[in-house]
Amino acid sequence: MHLAYPAVLAVLLFCTGLYGVLARRNAILVLMSVELMLNAVNLNLVAFDVWLRDTLHAGQALTLFTIAVAAAEIGIGLAIVLLVYRNRGSSDIDRLRDLAERPAGPDAADGGRQQPDTKAEATA
């Protein structure tokens, strides 16, 4: 099989996930797009492992590790999203702008907006 087939498919899946991460507004949809990007990387790893016939099977071992790390990531990510939802009433990442730098103005003295849950911005 030509190596370009899996490589190009992985590239296209990665860019689809990139579009999803940049364009989606709901935090859970952003997490789905991150999963697509991770899967594109996994496909590349498996294809290159089969191509190089690595005796250590580094590509497939790394794919398994990536899958496990992705499972951990989705668990932590969903916990953070649920926490944000519980605190703010929405999982809309466009509204989580408490750490944004605004131009100096009447808003600048309003320190009350800087509330201590910085976890909300971790998903933004």
Binding site: L18, L22, A23, D94
Partner: peptide, 13 residues
């Protein structure tokens, strides 16, 4: 479901 920066995201992708 899509945020305002949809078209720049499409261009980047």
């Amino acid at each position: 479901a899509d945020s305002g920066n949809r078209w720049p995201a499409l261009a980047v992708a």
